[in-house]
Design a protein around this nucleic acid. Sequence first.
DNA 1: TGACCGAGAATGATCGCTCGCATAAATTGA
DNA 2: TCAATTTATGCGAGCGATCATTCTCGGTCA
Lengths: 221, 221
Amino acid sequence: MKTALGNIEMLLEAEIDEGRALSRAERRELQVQRILDAAKTCFAREGFQGASMQQICAEASMSPGALYRYFVSKEAIIEEICAAARRDDEEKLAEMLTKRDVVEGMVFGAMTHIRFVHETDACALIAQFHAEATRSESVRAIYCNHLAEVRGIFLQYLGAALDRGEIEPLFELETLVPAMMSIIQGIANNDLPANGVALDKVETVVRTVMVSMLRPTGKAA
Amino acid sequence: MKTALGNIEMLLEAEIDEGRALSRAERRELQVQRILDAAKTCFAREGFQGASMQQICAEASMSPGALYRYFVSKEAIIEEICAAARRDDEEKLAEMLTKRDVVEGMVFGAMTHIRFVHETDACALIAQFHAEATRSESVRAIYCNHLAEVRGIFLQYLGAALDRGEIEPLFELETLVPAMMSIIQGIANNDLPANGVALDKVETVVRTVMVSMLRPTGKAA
DNA sequence: TGACCGAGAATGATCGCTCGCATAAATTGA
DNA sequence: TCAATTTATGCGAGCGATCATTCTCGGTCA
């Protein structure tokens, strides 16, 4: 799995290139990220409840005593991973909102997500989160909030297009949006690109679905 | 969760109505089903690894010693639940194959599945299985075999319609079928009907997707 | 009578997590 | 500038709880 190492790489560069020692805060951030990456690897491989703290410690080359300086519990690690994923998604959606053509915007949003899940091998991890969300109160809260937020953004984006007369949706957006989200999720979470369906074909499918649901009127230039 | 109690009800009827005692084999089948139902309840609530054998025993009103007379391990219970679900799906698909109009057949197949997941609250359990399939070798094998089987049936069903010239699919069925399966799975596993999208609207969405993917030519009477 | 069944305590392993202690880094005082 | 002191960090044995599973033994049918 690829990891979100941007910050860490910057920090390591600082240490290597400038020869300067890391500040306490920088070191701390580095350790936190190390734990998160190790946890993601273990969770994807063993599941949430299947991955033991000992395994995570081993993966992070760290003792339990050290790890617990950074996270108060296993649950806290899970929650932080959720929160980070949520921040990622918000960035992607913000980019979608800049697209003029609403069908292209939706296809872009969907494909960005699908490509991300494929490229980071996030499939297994997502399955674990989905399962955990049906079980743990705190994870479910995070998950549902995130879904509601994404739904809100789509509603706003499509609502504006509807007001401009660019689309004639199959029916009310309030029910269409959850349906479209489920469809995109189905494609992403099954990692279609890894199952013999090339990315450009996936995009054709997504665009076909969007067009048939939104029925663009061609009023946009 | 509603349970597949057909056989049990028959057995209980036999005991109550006819006043006859159950044979050993009948009693055994009854106990096995009791364990499976208890396990499904616990797995859906706590997850696979989260549900303890003690909890399953309590749910089934049975001691560990008794339970282990019927299943050699926790894993064996999981596998039997998978196998039963697989048998269920096969029945539904067989019914689909009897439908003449291929679009209606696909909609029927999809909606049967979606309705089943909704009515039996199988959502949580499915999420747990999906997660476990990324983890456990034996569960993954069962899951993948099942997927491949379903894919084969769809391919055969749609292939025949293609040969008859009833559809002009978006592209080759080998890639279209997995895409359609992912989409149906996304809708079912999110339990759209429980999230404010009425069943008839779900059906409209499914039919719209099918039509836009398969593009029926209207050659069928 | 003999095969089967059920109960529930017991088993060793493993769980998430804590604690005491050593070391390293930052801060202070002169 | 450099001990002295405080603070942060790391280690890993060890804690009580809980895990899946087994064992023993007494009861129940055919």
